[in-house]
Amino acid sequence: MASSSLENLETQLEMFIENVRQIHIIVSDFQPQSQNVLNQKLQALVHGLQEVDKLKSQVQDVHVPLEVFDYIDQGRNPQLYTKDCIEKALAKNEQVKGKIDAYRKFKANMLVELSRTFPNELSKYRALRADE
């Protein structure tokens, strides 16, 4: 649903840009006989805006991080932002997994040592905590 609507919007925008590009060519060396073509292109421009406006409702649920705009404004590839995000998420995921694993090992060692030192208490504890 979202991908198809995005594709539609992309197509419409590409067509709009292409139309503007053609107007640029017509205008850059204007010939009197090109006036009708220019008028048609201008009407197509309005039509293109109407089409983009119609697609507005279909992309309401698309959320774009504001940081991406900074990348684009600086003339940088926005995929670099995605790459950075993925790398950061992966690093954090690994870090948290490391912490969880360390705590699990610590708990297991703790239970072993406690069972050696306080066997009675630990058996009671294990009885209370069925899952331990």
């Binding site: 940088r76 926005p78 790459k83 993925i86 998420a89 992966l90 995921n93 948290v96 997994k97």
Partner: peptide
């Protein structure tokens, strides 16, 4: 769901990860 699970796999983003981590992206827009 905790950080102990591979979240990249959980959310099905392995393809995106391999896509971006493998090649060197060009800087320009």
């Amino acid at each position: 769901l905790t950080g102990a699970t591979n979240l990249m796999t959980y959310y099905g983003l392995e393809h995106s990860y391999s896509k971006f981590s493998g090649k060197k992206l060009k800087e320009q827009l």
